[in-house]
């Protein structure tokens, strides 16, 4: 309150305690409801506590070891921790994997969703596609990784990775990114599909009634209407990609530095990501440099938090989405 201003005596003073109407008290509830009430609060607060402690732990542990120099220096093999450098290569690897993964996943996820919702015939094929995406979503990443290893060691794919005359190693940014896209396709597909379902039929009819073909309607009306859903799905998919370790270790080699190999330069070379860097530097890996693992984990966590925040922001760009009401009702 600004004390310099004289108090306007004509205005009634605000009540010290805002009054509420009478409500039923917890005591008057049935026992079952009381237990549920307490359980709900306990579980909810417990989850919040876990999330907050993770963030606080890495804020404290990670930031205290985090030096700007760690972000910009290459890692190197050294017996002493002071000589082993930073994790620039791991950051580069994470960004590169995310980019390759999304580049593959977004077109596939969006086109699949458009086909299932806008065409979806024959019906049985649509159903098969839907369950296929569900199966991919439920497949553990290590299974995807080992499948990718088996696939890309085939001679036909040898140009994608470092290869010897005897065969391919199957490890490169391209092969890892391709398998990473399996992690991102389900969220992209699901978000796009839900957006398409929530887009009113009248909007498509309006376009047909103006003499547009189905494909022009999809391109000019339907896809613009769901671009926010696509962005949301992509961000969720990206978060899954940058958080994955198994595929990096099996298919990217988790090498210390980015290495150009094979026909396509660094794309067919090996490297590491923040996740594999954390694993290798943790006491579980060979590095035994927990402070660097913490610092890298803090960076990774920050990246994921920023992405999650970004998902929330995307939903608000450019006013309410066309199907906002449907969303609220659902």
């Amino acid at each position: 309150m600004a004390s310099a201003q004289p108090v306007d005596s004509t205005r009634p003073a605000p009540p010290r305690r805002r009054r509420h109407g009478r409500r039923s008290s917890l005591r008057s509830w049935r026992l079952r409801d009381q237990i549920t009430f307490v359980l709900a609060w306990t579980v909810g607060l417990g989850l919040c506590a876990v999330a907050i402690s993770v963030v606080v732990f890495f804020a404290v542990e990670g930031i205290q070891y985090l030096r700007p120099s760690l972000l910009v220096t290459h890692p190197s093999a050294s017996v002493s921790q002071s000589g082993s450098g930073g994790f620039l290569d791991a950051i580069e690897g994470t960004v590169l994997l995310g980019a390759i993964g999304l580049l593959i996943a977004v077109p596939i996820g969006v086109v699949t969703a458009v086909w299932v919702i806008e065409y979806g015939r024959p019906r049985w094929l649509g159903r098969i596609v839907e369950s296929t995406v569900e199966i991919i979503a439920g497949t553990p990443d290590i299974v995807i990784a080992i499948f990718g290893l088996a696939l890309f060691q085939l001679g036909a794919f040898s140009f994608l990775s470092f290869s010897e005359p005897g065969g391919a190693f199957g490890r490169s940014f391209l092969t890892a990114g391709a398998m990473m896209s399996f992690l991102a396709i389900p969220p992209v597909y699901t978000a796009t599909r839900n957006g398409l379902i929530a887009t009113p039929r009248q909007m498509r009819e309006a376009s047909f009634a103006l003499g547009k073909t189905r494909i022009a309607t999809i391109r000019r009306v339907v896809l613009p209407a769901v671009r926010r859903d696509i962005a949301t799905g992509s961000t969720l998919g990206l978060a899954r990609i940058i958080g994955d370790t198994a595929i990096v270790i099996l298919l990217l080699g988790a090498t210390l530095r980015l290495q150009s190999d094979g026909a396509l330069g660094f794309l067919s070379g090996t490297g590491s990501s923040l996740t594999s860097y954390i694993y290798n530097n943790s006491p579980a890996g060979d590095g035994n440099a927990p402070d660097k693992a913490y610092a890298a984990a803090a960076v990774l966590l920050l990246l994921v938090l920023v992405l999650n925040w970004g998902v929330g922001r995307i939903g608000r760009i450019g006013g309410p989405p066309i199907h906002a009401e449907r969303r609220l009702g659902a």
């Binding site: 009819e205 000019r220 613009p224 066309i322």
Partner: peptide, 13 residues
């Protein structure tokens, strides 16, 4: 033969 619908249905553009 153009058409106007019951609910205003502008495109999101």
């Amino acid at each position: 033969v153009s058409m106007v619908f019951q609910q205003p249905n502008p495109f999101p553009m």
